[in-house]
Design a binder for these strands. Structure first.
Lengths: 140, 140
DNA sequence: TTCATTGCAAAAGCTTTGCATGTGT
DNA sequence: ACACATGCAAAGCTTTTGCAATGAA
């Protein structure tokens, strides 16, 4: 389970398992969609949980490093994040020499597509992104 | 030419054509790739041109409105911009009911693709992005 | 002349950090 | 006990804004 994964990550790296870090991961697991650090802090505060802004800001890089959340860019200037698990879709890099296919997933890319669709009042159902080029081996 | 386009935009909108605005647009036209406001300010300053940071920040929205530059998101938290003219490529929204095709172009999307490729050491040649769904008419 | 624009410096908003205190391991 | 973590408040950065002075039309 996600929470355990984070705890294991902390132990493994020699970081400490603190009440604050537990409450932060718990809260993230209850959230849907993207969030920014201050939003997360305020949610914790509203619930009466005592975690400082500093701890929230300091814990986020750990969550990113552990692979639990990912940064997502937005049009405004704040940093936004979302759980990695929220999307299982992925796109492809296709090598035009050897045919190798590399799968990748970028939440930012997905979000930008949503923004484009919103601007055009287009109701997105699915999409297909293929990037053609040379893989590491074939480009040498 | 690009500069005239901006000047015309200013006049048309009742804004004034000032030395500062001219120097800002001149500088942007000499640049390649993306830039952030402070970078632009420093370039002007280095050249001995007297334009304040405030004016740079105040002029950027006008340039965006005039269609000369576009905002591009980055992984760091500063705003970045680039000349719209720098890319003529575009992608497609395709209506799965009436077949209508809407072209769009997002520099941010392009840049993200480049970042994905860089991460995978993939040498991009071209790409194809199609988003399928319902256009405004067909989704009613 | 008139009203937008400029520069400066102060303010604002988000994020980071120094330091003394507290706490997992 | 030791090293890392926390909270607070101060500092850092980028961007915005109030205001008096300046300048385009």
């Amino acid at each position: 389970m996600e929470k355990q994964k984070f705890m294991d990550f902390l132990s493994l790296k020699g970081f400490k398992v603190t009440r604050e870090r537990e409450e932060i991961i718990n809260e993230i697991l209850t959230m849907k969609g993207h969030f920014d650090p201050d939003e997360l802090y305020l949610r914790l505060k509203t619930k009466g949980l005592k975690v400082s802004r500093a701890s929230v800001y300091r814990t986020i890089p750990l969550l990113v490093e552990s692979g639990l959340i990912e940064q997502v860019e937005r049009v405004d200037k704040h940093a936004h994040y979302e759980k990695v698990s929220e999307n299982s879709h992925h796109d492809h890099l296709i090598c035009i020499k050897c045919g190798k296919v590399i799968e990748f997933y970028s939440p930012t890319l997905e979000m930008l597509q949503d923004e484009v669709c919103a601007k055009e009042k287009f109701k997105k159902v699915r999409h297909n992104l293929e990037i053609f080029g040379y893989c590491e081996n074939c480009s040498r």
